[in-house]
Design a protein around this nucleic acid. Sequence first.
DNA 1: CTGTTTGTTCGGTACACTCTGAACAAACGA
DNA 2: TCGTTTGTTCAGAGTGTACCGAACAAACAG
Lengths: 168, 168
Amino acid sequence: MSEDDRAVARERVIESMEQSAEVYGLSRSAGRIYGVLYFSDDPLSIPELVDQTGYAKSTISNVTRTLTRIGLIHRRSSAGGGRRVRYTAEREIWFILQDVFQQYVQREIQTTLRTIQRAQAQLPDDGETETERIEELQETYEDLQEIATLASDFTAAELRDALESYDR
Amino acid sequence: MSEDDRAVARERVIESMEQSAEVYGLSRSAGRIYGVLYFSDDPLSIPELVDQTGYAKSTISNVTRTLTRIGLIHRRSSAGGGRRVRYTAEREIWFILQDVFQQYVQREIQTTLRTIQRAQAQLPDDGETETERIEELQETYEDLQEIATLASDFTAAELRDALESYDR
DNA sequence: CTGTTTGTTCGGTACACTCTGAACAAACGA
DNA sequence: TCGTTTGTTCAGAGTGTACCGAACAAACAG
């Protein structure tokens, strides 16, 4: 088993991360940068990421900013006191998914629900089609919000256990 | 309470659907078309959708195809025996979310897991960084797949109940 | 102080995606 | 049969996004 084989395996997984990134609405470069950091033993600076990914410095700078903002990677504020910024990957995938979930899904549910409630408040309960349909929507979204709120408090193991042990 | 007010409320909710569509990786037109169908009492044909949305015929044709493919709307195969195709909206939001979940998230988890497992199978258990990291990934994704599989069998009410009644 | 390294910002290019309008095929009504 | 309506397909216009290279600012080493 050579160093080469490990590199190949690593590359395959990183390519898979590139693809996942697209599914989650991020760019392919975001997937690769996260992947390189995921496998790196030490925190990496922007020039080092330029070397290992082949992307331009500006691309690394922009992508690391957004990845940091959504919590996929962390800024190690200069251990040596230098200016050099170094990044590490958040390796707890469950945390990442929870963050993404919170920032995209939960937020989406919340704003939609607010819109629905506001529209509903202006309409009388007159049994017209629009009113009825909006009411249906409201109920569904209230359920969804409840589920999302509850789920965000669970760890992966707890969630799995809760689903496995649930008796209908 | 005038017909006008109802139209305004309806329009607000449809705009919200346009936005949701973007979050789920669909076009704005998809959100509006779904919204118009959601509020319509009767199934609508493509020319009727052209009237009510203002989009070009070709746009309606293309978007209805993708919406049908992912199960957000249904093709009512010509009740009158005519050529006219008519569409209805799937109003059970929970079903829609389950479908989207199944087609995007579950699929993504599955292909990623396969890649990881294949990469892992080619590496010895030698305690090197790559091997270790890939092992971590594999465990996480196996958990995720289990959760996704379990969750796809639940109704919204069951899921909510399972989470609410779970005692850690 | 001067040259080097690091990181951010900005303008530009390449590309994908949405939507349109026109051309076309299929089914209908006269 | 011929004109009309419906639905699909295709090339192209317009738009947004990813990425790059250059210019710039900030901090360091000498």
